[in-house]
Amino acid sequence: MLIKPISDTVISASRLGLTFETNDGPVHALSDVDLDIAKGEFVSFIGPSGCGKTTFLRVIADLEQPTSGTISVNGMTPEEARRSRAYGYVFQAAALYPWRTIERNVALPLEIMGHSRAERQARVARTLDLVNLTGFEKKYPWQLSGGMQQRASIARALAFDADLLLMDEPFGALDEIVRDHLNEQLLQLWARTSKTICFVTHSIPEAVYLSTKIVVMSPRPGRVTDVIESTLPKERPLDIRETPEFLAIAARVREGLRAGHSYE
């Protein structure tokens, strides 16, 4: 694997490809993906189903192995990065353990990583506060709404202070109002913690609202068709979505998505 010494680059992929062998022949989930993500960026991956955006995230997380090309995470291979607990991963579903209370769910990675009890308590309290779930420590997951469960799962990913946060359509199953609210909170959280966030979505407004960089992808084979650097300010109230600047970026994303589809 190629290892880049540039400390400012968190993720660097070059000519990355991943082919799944299935009974119906090979499926090219990723093909020739070149991408650099710098520290502190908020990068959204957008594209239709099957464009490989989730696969790319899973390659970063060492949950899938690329079949060609190179990728480095924090200057290491994805496996080394995973072993050094370089990232927190938020899945499409909250995946909270139903037999654990919220605080014990958030403490789960801390238990596994061997933090002391006092340390665990302090971190759980801090991260639950970050996602506005203070007061729900003793509740079980089923006692919380879907949005609150997803916030708890974000707290769990934040609890061990990895600098990189990988989020795979975390708000996909939530209704629009809750989603708006969580997007706003996520931006505040990003501003406060200065983490690097990779965020998979298929909502154009969500991608434009959140990101400093939008990666537009297209399916079969999954590849990057456009990378858009956002010109929006870091401070983003919800009504920024009505400004001409926002709409221009959204139009360009839509254009990129349409271009990807015309290959078919």
Partner: peptide, 26 residues
């Protein structure tokens, strides 16, 4: 356990015994 719950343990680089006691057994 769901794939997603097992994947979660993998992202934490949990050992086999940790995965057993904290996920499979409960």
């Amino acid at each position: 356990p769901d794939t997603i719950q097992l994947d979660l343990m993998r992202t934490y680089h949990a050992s086999q015994s940790q995965t057993f006691w904290k996920l499979r057994f409960p």
